[in-house]
Design a binder for these strands. Structure first.
Lengths: 152, 152
DNA sequence: CCGAATTAGATTGCGCACAATCTAATTGCC
DNA sequence: GGCAATTAGATTGTGCGCAATCTAATTCGG
């Protein structure tokens, strides 16, 4: 009876989806780390590079919207990517408030070296692609509902 | 054709389950924040309190194993909880290497004030309990497979 | 027993994340 | 045109998260 109650107790750690997501994010990070170390990237930096490999020469704001990050996070991160000669930061001429982020040749070239990363992650997940796609879609839907609540 | 390819491209941001998990974790954090502010806790501190509300007077190591965190994270966090008079840190007498973490009266009392948190999160998730339980179990299974790979 | 290896936790340093605040540029409104 | 409101980034401060290193206590193998 006490056992049955505890598996329903919403205040129990193991019953919380948020902790599942939180701890899964850290587990992913730990799997990515050795792969990204070889590229000289952290995981958030890798995310920024993924954005730029899809579309180059974008304002900081667009990167922030895609990754759900603000300038307080992105400004120093992008300065580090610039120091690593992977991107160039330039004030937009049309709108001087914007800073445009463009890949350098090195930044472009890194895409090839990063090509094997997703399949290494897939292998570590030890899970079929279709299962992962289903889970991903469910998690994205949940995330979007949560983000909708934040905007009231 | 190009469109079809891009929806399969493993190097695309939107195709990566890890980004889904990463961004969902941040979304959860943003939903929790105003709820936890009222308790004077951050989300990781709330997780530690959840552990202690289940079982009091445990060594730091046990907390770390439950939350997948190490002393570099927990030591300063626990010192902040102690400064907030929610826990007491004492060297174990049997094994002087261990530091035991015990709730104060205030720490115990906070459990009642935190009781409404999970249902607020459930409401924000805008999702049935059974759906959430299924997702949670899938995510935990994935996390555990990832963690298994890390330990080689 | 005693020295080596292991273990628990603390410390240092770096890189996010984000709130709050600031500056400068642009837009909107009259 | 001119002033208020908005917008894009930068800055500052706090709190994780983790690698690397350190100390002190305990355990293990001979």
């Amino acid at each position: 009876m006490a056992r049955k109650l505890s598996t329903l107790d919403p205040q129990r750690l193991d019953n919380q989806i948020c902790f599942a997501v939180y701890s899964a994010a850290h587990a992913f990070n730990r799997v990515y780390k050795p792969l990204l170390d070889r590229l000289g990237l952290t995981y958030p930096q890798y995310l920024v590079m993924l954005v730029l490999w899809e579309r180059d020469d974008v304002p900081v704001k667009d990167i922030g919207e895609k990754l759900f990050l603000d300038s307080g996070t992105l400004t120093p991160l992008l300065k580090r990517l610039e120091a690593a000669h992977l991107v160039k930061r330039t004030r937009s001429r049309e709108d001087e408030r914007q800073v445009m982020i463009a890949l350098t040749a090195q930044g472009h070239a890194l895409k090839e070296k990063a090509r094997s990363v997703p399949q290494s992650i897939l292998a570590a997940s030890d899970c079929s692609v279709s299962e992962l796609v289903t889970m991903k879609d469910e998690i994205v839907a949940l995330r979007d509902r949560l983000n909708a609540v934040i905007g009231e």
